Amino acid sequence: MLDSRRNILLACALSALAGYVDGIGFLHLGGLFVSFMSGNSTRMGVSLAEGDWQPAAQAFGLIVLFVVGAAIGSLIVRSRSRYCQCWILLVEAALLAAAGLCHVRGFPQAAIAAIVLAMGLENAVFQIEGSGGLGLTYVTGALVKIGQLMAVALTGGPRFGWVPNLLLWAALVTGSVIGAGVYLRINLAAIWFAAAVAFALGAMLAMGARARKD
């Protein structure tokens, strides 16, 4: 899926967006994540072992919302429209904008719910019907692929096949730095910038898809 410059740039932009949003969510939730469900699953397990039910329930709720978002994204993919990537990003933008509105209206829990749904949804951007697609809001898989493709390079394979996955990881880290920095200045209102980026990316993809059709 990281087989063209267009896909690499789009994946890195979306990974940076996810890192930005996750940086905001991590600070707002005090150590839980809005896109990294492995971390939330570990936190839930530790809390259950300690008998600390409230954090365990909170982590579980985030996991459920993320799965629902991923399911919504997959339903959009199954529509088989040439505009499905555009629709995924525009729905994501709408959810992030809804989160911004919920923050303004004083409903922080609803804001977080909308953000988590958006992060689950984003992972369907590179999904091909019948497959799991490319994870964009977490980079454990990308790090594994970096190591695996480095081994391939050392044994005579493509010398730089690992670079796209490194860029994906670097984009997420960069996004999280920016997101955390903005959150520390304007709190959850930082999510408006993420909504604007998602909308811009969705609009660009829509124009590209229309141009290819013409």
Rank of each mutant, 00 (worst) to 15 (best):
L188H: 00
L101C: 13
Y138Q: 13
T140D: 10
A118G: 15
M44F: 09
W53R: 14
M44D: 08
S15Q: 11
A93E: 01
P158G: 02
I72D: 10
H103M: 09
L48D: 09
A189G: 12
L117G: 03
I112D: 03
D52A: 15
I63T: 01
L95A: 00
W87K: 11
Q148C: 10
A93K: 00
Y183R: 04
A142C: 12
L205W: 00
H103L: 11
Y20P: 02
E50Q: 13
A70Q: 02
L117Q: 03
L201M: 04
I24S: 03
Q148Y: 13
G156K: 00
V197C: 07
A203H: 12
L27K: 03
M207I: 14
V67A: 02
E122M: 15
L121T: 08
I24P: 00
T42F: 11
A18L: 10
A111M: 13
S4H: 10
F36A: 10
G23A: 01
E92Q: 07
T174R: 04
P164F: 02
N165R: 09
L188F: 12
L62R: 03
T137Q: 13
A70G: 07
A13N: 09
A113D: 11
G120T: 02
I146M: 15
F160Y: 15
L166M: 00
I146K: 02
S15N: 08
L205K: 01
V144S: 09
G175C: 05
I112L: 15
V177F: 14
A209T: 12
G19L: 10
T155Y: 05
L75K: 14
L101E: 12
L90C: 01
A97W: 09
I72A: 15
M44Y: 06
E92S: 03
R43W: 12
W169D: 05
F26C: 02
W53Q: 15
W53K: 06
S15R: 05
I115E: 03
S41A: 15
G179C: 06
S4D: 11
I146C: 12
S38A: 11
S131Q: 15
V77K: 00
L166C: 01
A97I: 06
Y83E: 13
C86V: 12
F199Q: 11
S35R: 03
F193C: 12
Q54P: 05
I76L: 14
V64G: 07
A94H: 08
F193M: 14
V67G: 02
A124N: 00
L96Y: 04
A151R: 02
F107I: 06
W162H: 07
L32M: 11
